[in-house]
Design a protein around this nucleic acid. Structure first.
Lengths: 236, 236
DNA sequence: CTGTATCCGTGTTGATACTG
DNA sequence: CAGTATCAACACGGATACAG
């Protein structure tokens, strides 16, 4: 009687499900736990190792990261894979379906960009910046523009290709970019979203630019931010 | 000394922020707590009272609901409003910006509809069903169709209007619908998503249909579900 | 009737230290 | 490097009591 601990909970309550047929609620059952979506964000541009993930998310602790990776693997969102020698490392990579979650991040990002409480001076991960470019890109602003920009962020290099009113940004090195930008994600974000003049960032040693500066300046204007929503106590 | 409870936590850790400039991470700071998004879902079709919210989310407890409402109000996502007499009730309603969160639910819903683990036999809230119609509507399937359907779900009535390859579904009564469907959300979902024949649902007393049945049958085909993603242990 | 506040058992989270 | 172990703090959910 004292041992009749109700361990036989409907086993659906185990992982604390919402018990709701709504697909959005099910999505939250799968990826609604703390950190789960940020782990996915960090994998959206390609596989990473355990320690890469930790480095990209300073706030997460090792045990929680382990739990999330297990949960996401069980859900079919990611898989672990052993790289063959000589790289001989274990990496985590999203499944096809996992990669299809990107629209979730775009919807979240677009919506929260209007938040009155958003503080853009916080630490900015490399993946966040690259994904934000895909999200905030304005086809209208890019009318008639065609260019290739190399972005060197830390030890990673990305290539942004703008053409026909569309953009692609991926992990890749480019042979002959029109311009190259080197620095950390915060500074690049300052130039693109914060309106900080490139010259100022260069003078501060935060960014290094080379190649066609006019193209670079134009590139910075392709990612307009939406207007802020009224703060909580506003009129109406 | 016993009172030196560390209340002076960096005040940024108080509400357990991700401390990340990424807009998507900020979105999760605002609405990433358990139940927060479901509360928003329940308000997306119009204001509700405290007890309506509880009824729509059987799993949430009163104190947690209070906390979420406070948090979402502070974030500027919703506001509380007192209805004038004789209704004299307090309702919660999304702000303009709050209503703009609908794409988040669509992205979540579309993605999770492919989940191998999704169980559509669970309880289904009225709001979930209506929002899913907006989400899953296929303009291609609706080519050439123009109709007005009344949906009576519990004590709420909604009107779906299909025209020009678009759909609108709202809380509203319609004077002269082409057809009327009455029943609970589960049964309507069975007809639309589960492929259960209307006649069977009527025979079981789960649904009542009236008006143009051909239009109704056609209406049921406008909301195709995506293919399931492979289950966790799949080949590749 | 519509919430709000408080207590309490439990599970989740997060920091630190530690192991293969 | 890739996790596991331990433990304290907190969040969640249920029950109950209380206030307008």
């Amino acid at each position: 009687m004292s041992s009749e601990k109700i361990t036989d909970k409907p086993e659906a309550v185990r992982r604390r499900s919402y018990e709701d047929a709504c697909a959005a609620a099910h999505a939250l059952d799968l990826v609604g736990e703390r950190w789960a979506l940020l782990v996915m964000r960090e994998l959206l541009l390609g596989p990473k190792r355990f320690s890469d993930l930790r480095a990209a998310m300073p706030g997460i602790s090792a045990n929680v990261l382990t739990q999330r990776l297990e949960g996401l693997e069980e859900a079919g969102v990611l898989r672990r894979r052993e790289l063959p020698p000589p790289a001989a490392a274990r990496v985590y990579e999203l499944t096809e379906w996992g990669y299809e979650a990107e629209p979730i991040f775009q919807a979240l990002g677009r919506w929260a960009a209007r938040s009155p409480l958003h503080d853009p001076t916080l630490p900015f991960s490399t993946n966040s910046l690259i994904l934000s470019l895909r999200t905030m890109f304005s086809p209208a602003r890019a009318a008639g523009l065609s260019c290739l920009i190399a972005l060197r962020l830390g030890y990673e290099t990305f290539t942004a290709r703008v053409a026909d009113g569309a953009i692609s940004v991926e992990r890749a090195v480019t042979a002959a970019p029109d311009a190259t930008l080197e620095g950390d994600a915060r500074s690049v974000a300052g130039a693109i979203y914060g309106g900080v003049p490139l010259s100022a960032l260069e003078a501060a040693g935060a960014l290094k630019a080379s190649g066609d500066r006019a193209v670079l300046e134009r590139f910075f204007t392709l990612f307009p931010l939406p207007a802020k929503a009224p703060a909580p106590g506003a009129p109406r």
